[in-house]
């Protein structure tokens, strides 16, 4: 752990945000890769199949932001790109329906597919997934008497993403499993219908990136924030302590058995400046954030693990540098 004093801080005052007086900004430092390696740390705080939280410590804001931008707009994923409408007699318009279908997240692993060439008209088994959605709403013949509930009166009155059927092309059936390519969620409502309404659609999913359309973005959110830090400058007890506690997010300020307030964990503080509303305690705290401690939150849409998305993002930046260097060498 670096000493507390080594951390560059930004101080949140009542009416302004200012850098610590001894902080001349990280921009003045000369670049030194060894020093970067020595200072840089990653801590994983929380991780499961859909969401993760991790800290990048001792990194430049430019890098942190590059990683975030890459996750959002340059890591590829599969999404429905073309919808051939053979029949649509439901009340939802063709183009609106096609747009809705495009936004359905697919489980297919984009690493197993290639980008489809811009001029290609027919997809191959390596770059395309094909689905169909064929469903018709009808009156329920065995409807119970006196019921006016839609689920009793009609069959297939709500079309869900579970009705989308995968049609393997070429050798796909032996490479992928049906459960691994279809929609991530089976209960996404696509359309509501009434007897006589019918959908007969052919869906084509391709690989793409978020820069082209947000539906290709593999993350629901990818964001970072700076680590908050709260320092108490004097003893706060009794009623003032409870008041102080109420100024911050829950569990941030604790009160010990003597009724004295202490900072329990500033990490999840919302960094509101409520304390400054109370003259009695506003001199007791210094609110700050650590300028090189980035708390990342990555939430996957479902196709890839969040940890994989981050690694892919960094790989994309690395490959960019590599290809640009190759370009420059024959300049």
């Amino acid at each position: 752990m670096p000493k507390l004093e080594d951390k560059p801080r930004v101080i949140l005052e009542e009416f302004r945000v200012k850098n610590a007086p001894d902080d001349y900004g990280m921009a003045d430092e000369k670049w030194n890769f060894k020093k970067f390696v020595k200072k840089f740390r990653i801590v994983i705080v929380r991780m499961d199949n859909s969401e993760m939280e991790f800290d990048l410590i001792g990194i430049q804001p430019a890098f942190a932001n590059a990683f975030r931008r890459l996750m959002l707009s340059e890591v590829p994923s599969m999404a429905i790109e073309k919808v051939m409408i053979k029949n649509n007699t439901s009340i939802i318009q063709d183009e609106v329906l096609a747009h809705r279908l495009g936004l359905i997240p697919l489980k297919a692993d984009p690493k197993l597919f290639e980008y489809r060439a811009e001029d290609s008209t027919d997809g191959t088994e390596f770059d395309t997934l094909e689905f169909t959605l064929k469903i018709k709403c009808s009156a329920n013949k065995s409807q119970p008497k006196d019921s006016f509930r839609a689920e009793d009166l009609y069959e297939n009155h709500s079309v869900y993403s579970s009705s989308i059927k995968w049609h393997p092309i070429g050798n796909q059936a032996s490479v992928h499993k049906e459960t691994e390519v279809g929609p991530v969620h089976s209960d996404i409502l696509i359309s509501k219908m009434r007897p006589g309404h019918e959908l007969d659609l052919h869906l084509v999913a391709v690989k793409g990136i978020g820069k082209d359309h947000a539906k290709f973005s593999p993350v629901a959110t990818a964001s970072y924030r700076l680590l908050p830090e709260i320092t108490l400058t004097r003893e706060v007890t009794g009623g003032e302590a409870t008041l102080l506690q109420s100024c911050f997010s829950p569990c941030v300020i604790g009160i010990d058995s003597d009724g004295r307030a202490f900072v329990r964990d500033a990490r999840y503080d919302s960094c509101s400046r409520n304390v400054y509303r109370y003259d009695s305690i506003k001199d007791a705290v210094v609110l700050s954030r650590i300028r090189n401690h980035f708390i990342f939150n990555v939430e996957s849409v479902g196709a890839m693990l969040p940890s994989v998305i981050f690694v892919e993002a960094v790989k994309i930046l690395r490959d960019k540098c590599k290809s640009l260097l190759d370009d420059l060498n024959n300049f």
Partner: peptide, 19 residues
């Protein structure tokens, strides 16, 4: 570009180790 590539390589290694 070489330095940026080194930064990326190091980040990937460290991240995968931590995971």
């Amino acid at each position: 570009l070489k330095d940026l590539q080194k930064v990326c390589d190091h980040t990937i290694d460290l991240f995968e180790k931590e995971v």
